[in-house]
C-alpha cells in the first residue's frame, strides 16, 4: 500500500498539478494529491470531479482514472482529483481483513489499484478526539475527524483532513469551478444508494439528469442534501463556495456490514450470498441477486450519471456547458469491462 497507483493520462491532458499548487501547506505532506486538468478550446463552464474521497469505495476512484485516461475536453474545463484523500489510500480499515489492492486486466497487462480506508491514515493524523467538532461547528464521533467528507469547508490551520478539504475549496475558487461532482459508493443496506444527492441549488440539475438516466435504463433515487448535516461536499461546496454540488452513490457490497468474506472477487464481481439472502428478506435498498453488482456495472453507473449531469448542465445553463469527447460509454463498459478503457 506504500506504492502509488499508476495513472496514465490520455493525450488530451492540459495540465497535471497537485493539490498543494492550490494550497501550498499541503506540499510534502501525505495529504497532497494529483490533480488533472482537461481544458477545451471553447469557453464554457468548469466542472470538478472527485474520486477517492473514501478510498474503500473503489468505483469512484476507478471512474476518475478512466476519465483521466480517456477524455478530451471540447468546451469548458474538467478538473479531476482521483484520490481526494490520498492518505486514506495508504492503509486499510483495521480488523476488516480487506484486500489491500485489486487487479484489472487491460490490453497492456494487469493493472493494480489500491483499496484503502474510509478515513485518513492514523499514522498521518493522530489521535482522534473523543468528540470531533468539524469546521462548521457540528459535533461528530471522534473518528470522523479523519473523514474528508465531514471536514468541509476545511481549515487552513486544521488537522490534515481539514487541510485537504481546505485545499479542495481553494481549488474550487482558483479554477472558478461551477459544478462539483463527488463520486462515492454505499453499502446495499444503506438507504441513500443508487442515488444522486444534490444541494438545493442543483435540484433542477439533479432532476433533469435523473430523468435522462431513467430514459436510458438507469434508476437513480434523488436525495436532497439536508441543510442541517454539515461538513459534507454536497452541502459546503454549495453553501460556502456557491457552486452547484452533486454526489453520486453506487452499491458496493465490499464495504457493507452484511458481507461474507472480504476478497478481491467481492470487490470486482460484487457477489455475496449473505447480501443475496438479505435481499430476499427485503432488508436492502437495491436488488441483489446471484449475479451480484460488479465493479464494472458500478463504474458504468457513475459514467452514465456524469454524462447525464453534464447534459443537464448544458440544457439548464448553456453558458456553463462543458462538453467532452471519448467519455467511456456506460453500455460498453458493462459489456467490455473496465480494462478495455484503461491504458
Amino acid at each position: 500500500m506504500r506504492e502509488a497507483d499508476a495513472i496514465h493520462p490520455g493525450p488530451a491532458l492540459t495540465a497535471a498539478r497537485s493539490l498543494s499548487d492550490y494550497f501550498p501547506s499541503l506540499k510534502g505532506t501525505p495529504g497532497d494529491t494529483p490533480v488533472y486538468v482537461y481544458a477545451g478550446a471553447t469557453e464554457g463552464g468548469n466542472v470538478l470531479i472527485i474520486g477517492g474521497t473514501h478510498p474503500n469505495e473503489p468505483a469512484g476512484f476507478v471512474t476518475s482514472v478512466m476519465l483521466i485516461e480517456n477524455i478530451r475536453a471540447v468546451r469548458g474545463k474538467i478538473v479531476i482529483v482521483p484520490q481526494a484523500n490520498a492518505s486514506g489510500f495508504t492503509h486499510s480499515d483495521p480488523q476488516e481483513g480487506s484486500p489491500q489492492r485489486f487487479p484489472i486486466a487491460t490490453a497492456a497487462g494487469q493493472r493494480w489499484f489500491r483499496l484503502g480506508s474510509r478515513v485518513t491514515n492514523p499514522i498521518h493524523q493522530w489521535p482522534d478526539p473523543t468528540i470531533y467538532v468539524n469546521p462548521t461547528g457540528q459535533t461528530l464521533a471522534g473518528i470522523e475527524a479523519r473523514n474528508l467528507n465531514r471536514a468541509y469547508p476545511g481549515k487552513a490551520g486544521g488537522n490534515l483532513t481539514e487541510k485537504v478539504a481546505f485545499g479542495i475549496m481553494e481549488l474550487i475558487k482558483k479554477e472558478r469551478i461551477d459544478l462539483g461532482i463527488d463520486l462515492h459508493e454505499s453499502a446495499p443496506e444503506y438507504p441513500v444508494i443508487n442515488a444522486i444527492v444534490f444541494h438545493e441549488n442543483s435540484a433542477d440539475l439533479a432532476a433533469t439528469a435523473q430523468m435522462e438516466l431513467q430514459a436510458e435504463g438507469f434508476e437513480f433515487r434523488l436525495e436532497a442534501s439536508p441543510p442541517n448535516l454539515r461538513g459534507l461536499s454536497h452541502r459546503e461546496w454549495g453553501d460556502v463556495a456557491g457552486i452547484r454540488a452533486i454526489l453520486m452513490e453506487t452499491p458496493n457490497a465490499s464495504h457493507g456490514r452484511l458481507k461474507g468474506k472480504p476478497s478481491v472477487e467481492l470487490i470486482i464481481d460484487g457477489k455475496d450470498k449473505f447480501y443475496e439472502k438479505a435481499a430476499r428478506l427485503g432488508r436492502l435498498f437495491v436488488p441483489f441477486g446471484p449475479d451480484g453488482i460488479p465493479l464494472k456495472n458500478r463504474v458504468a453507473r457513475h459514467l452514465a450519471g456524469l454524462k447525464a449531469v453534464l447534459s443537464g448542465l448544458k440544457e439548464l445553463d448553456p453558458g456553463k456547458a462543458v462538453e467532452v469527447e471519448d467519455l467511456p460509454p456506460a453500455d460498453r463498459v458493462r459489456v467490455e469491462g473496465i480494462g478495455a478503457f484503461l491504458r
Binding site: I196, A203, D204, A206, A207, Q210, M211, L222, E223, A224
Partner: peptide
C-alpha cells in the same frame, strides 16, 4: 417530503 420526486414533477 420526497423532495427529489417533487423536483422531477416541477421539471416535467
Amino acid at each position: 417530503q420526497s423532495s427529489g420526486d417533487a423536483q422531477i414533477a416541477l421539471q416535467l
